[in-house]
Every structure is written in structure tokens, then in C-alpha cells.
Design a protein around this nucleic acid. Sequence first.
RNA 1: GGUACCGUGGCCGAGAGGCUAGGCAAGGCUCUGCAAAAGCCUCUACAGCAGUUCGAAUCUGCUCGGUACCUCCA
Length: 488
Amino acid sequence: MGATLKIYNTLSRTTEDFKPIHAGHIGMYVCGPTVYNNAHLGNCRTYISFDTIFRYFLHLGYKVRYVRNITDAGHLEGDSDEGDDKFAKKAKLEQVEPMEIVQRFTVDFHKVLEQLNTLPPSIEPTATGHILEQIEMAQKIIDSGFAYEKNGSVYFDVEKFAQKNKYTELSNRNLDELLNNTRELEGQSEKKGRLDFALWIKAKPEHIMRWNSPWGQGFPGWHIECSAMSSKYLGNEFDIHGGGMDLIPTHHTNEIAQNIACHQKQPARYWIHTNMLTVNSQKMSKSLGNSFLPNELFSGNHKLLDKGYSPMTVRFFMLQAHYRSTLDFSNEALQAAEKGYQRLMNAVKLIANLKTSNLSTVNCEVLISSVYEAMNNDFNTPIALANLFDGVRIINSVNDGKESITEKDKQTLQKLFNDFLFDIFGLKEEKNSTSENIDGLMNLILEIRNEAKAKKDFSTSDLIRNKLKEIGFEIKDGKDGTEFSIVN
RNA sequence: GGUACCGUGGCCGAGAGGCUAGGCAAGGCUCUGCAAAAGCCUCUACAGCAGUUCGAAUCUGCUCGGUACCUCCA
């Protein structure tokens, strides 16, 4: 465990040793959802990835402040700065208050993430709750000369900023090409340069969400909230900033520019970006119409799904791919994950009752270090999981009497699986039944069945087994008695 | 159009200059009244074509195919 944790840093495009700014403490900011719609599975993947990273840090003993925002204001629609904000637009369509939209989808978001067993972040600040901070930051950027006010809106002057700073450091783009891109701006623009972006947007008369500012009534631009809130809660310089890869070229690039213009500091040491969830190798996104909602997946109520998959199956499925790789979503892949997940959980349940002996025929130390080694190598959960499956084989073999372990090794295994599966990977046992009495009930049934078997009354024993199977209980006859498991 | 990235066995996915993950599926065996589970075994791949190298799926070049970003998106 003394080994160094390595993290791929988008900023340097290399894998670096991780060293927190303040020993033992980690500040991590992750861009959260825009709550004007239900979060889809692609969004969830990112939050599950960062949840796993968060959990691993906690496991390693770090004190972590994990900040993940809720975007509930601003956030322009389209590339026109004259556009509506998403909340006002949606509200108009549905004839409700913008905050009603925000409330509904925030609640949904929390519910879904809870089903997926993610830990709540330490702080979950909202954009509407930090209007003052955003105004203040915009003003500071104006004062520093990198932003200008025009007709009640405030814009960031990218070209001026880029003269002395590396505007495209994160995206690794060629600035001249960006500037000379032939794409024309729509509508009349108040912007000086084509790359300029809004820090503050003047509200149109019909605009509902609006706040007073030095430049008149308006609402904040999208990028400024993350800059304002990350520096407020984590300081001008903190350890990790994360989000989906699609945020790199615009949102995060602009965020960095704002922070540097305001605080003269690159905000985060390590930038971590998660890759996309794909469907038929195409990015899952709402606009492409190929997105799945978590509830559609859990219930199986979707035209591309044969059946429903439990939240933990989904979480396991995502852990089987590295966070920086795309992950392709399909019925087949989900089915494989479901089986694999069950195999893993079945093995975990066996550990406690494993018989021990004086010597181990297996090497648990090697297993443990291989799992940590995988996680320390840029949070390689698929490798860690593969190694844990070696542990599954060990557990099953011991259970079958084909290998043996000492009491100490047994405890080591128990701790390893508890730590990784439950604490770090955030998996949990899913109860298919609300009844706590099921074990007792089943024991009675199995006793009757065993009596029938003893009398060679196999038609009765088979009837019990088959009927139980139909309602979701699987019977397994072993040397030392009969076990059952609940199947979906 | 510009800029990146990717192409791994039936499927999902790691890895990465030589010792060749893992899960699922398929076939065989063991155990077993039958079955299930589990274990063991089998199937052994890296788009194509050249090149570098003692040796390449891993490096280089080209070709083909795909994706992402450049516009809101995790």
C-alpha cells in the first residue's frame, strides 16, 4: 500500500505520481449535472467513476473534500449568447417556475445516484446559491483586463488572455486554428472575438431567472459557476478537478482561463476526465436520442433491452471498463456483467464459512498486492476486478476442499473483499425480498425436501426444487447440505 | 473541412516490444439420484499492407474502417 498512486493528468497528457498539496488532504471538484432534465446513464457513469475514486482516497486514509456542483441557472442553449437559459425555456414549455424544474430533477438525480450507491459529495453547491460569488469573480476579471462589458453582458476576452497565457493547454488545440475556424457565428454578436464567452448575460424582458448585477439584471454564464464555487470551497489552487471528457475543450478550458485571469493560478494540479458511455459505439447523449434513463434500465422498460438490470449490475458493468475508455452498452454486455457480478457476490458470501487448516496452499499476499497495484495505476478497476476473480477461484476451491487456507488468510481474504467490493467499488448486496424471515422459511422447505430425498421420493424433491426455481430460488445440493440463492 | 483518438478471440473488455488479464457465451470432464453450483480442461485474438528489431498485437509509415471534439452535452 506504500506504493505511489499514479493518475493520468489531462493537463500534461501523462500519468503522474499523485502528491496532494497538503499531505493527507485532498480537494476534489467534479462538474455536476445541469438539472433541467433527467440524468441519463452516460452522466451516471462519470459520477460512478468519481465516486469510486473518492472512495479509494477515503480507503487510503485521505481526508477528502469532494465538491460537486448542481447547475441550476444560466447555461446557454445553443451557441448564441442571446439565447434563453435552459431553465427558463423549459419552464415556458411546461408553464412552471424554473425552480420547480430544478427541484424535480435535482431530486431525481439524487435518487438515481443513491440507487447506484454513490456517496454524497462533501459539498454540493448550486449556481443559484452563488450568484454573488460569480458576479464578484466576473468583476475581478474585468478589473484584471481580461473581460469587457457590452450592453449589460460581460464577455471574457480570449484573444487577449491567450497573448500571455496558454489558453489551449488543456485541450491541446491549436489556437490559431480555433481562431480561424470558418464557422460563422449566428446572429448579431456583441463579442469582440469569436472565442469570447459570456461571464454574465443580460436578461431579456421575458426572462424569468434574473439577478441584479453591476451591469443590470441578468444571469451568469455557464463556466463561471465552477470557477467561483471551486475556489470558494477548495481554494485558488486545489488537487483534482474532474468531469466528462466532453467538457475539456470548452467548459474546462474556459474555467481555467477564468481562474487564471482572476487568481493568477491554474486552479487544479490534476485534471481527470472520464470517457463516454456509447451505444453501438456512438456516444450516448440526449440530443442523439440514444440515451437510457437509469429507471428504464432498472425496469427493462426500453426498446433496446430484453430485461431489467439491477443498479449493482450496472455499477459492476461500469467497473469492468477503465474510466478513460469508452464503454459500449448492450444487452449482451449487461447480461455478462449480471452473471459475473452474481458469481463474485456468491463467492463473498462463502468466505465467512470457509474451513481453515494449518497451512495455505494459496498465496493471499500476492493477490492483495496485485489488487492495490491495479488501483494505484490510475484507478484500473477492470484489472483490480480481474485479480479479485482470482480470489473468487481461491474461495470456491477452498470451499470445495481442493485448496486450503489458514485462519489468518481467511481473514485476509474477508477484509480484501469487504474493502474492495463494498467500500471502494461501492457494490452492495441487493435484497430481492423485503422479508427477513426468508432464511427460516427456506430452511424449513429444504428440510422437508431433504426428508423426501432420504426416502428416495425424488418426485417430491424435484417438485420442490422446480417450483422454487420458478419463483426465483435456486437450490444447490452439496456434500455438506443444501444451499439456496435468490436469482433474478 | 480542421484536430485528436481508436480498431483485441462469438460478445464485453484489460494489457502492452519477448513470459500472451478477467467476465460472459460455447464444448468436454469431475462431483451428483437427476439438476444446479463449483472446479479442471478446450477454443488463444490483437483491422490490412509494408518497415524497424534477434523478436511487434505493442514502435514507424501508409491504407481501410470507426468515433470524438471544433456548437449544449458527463
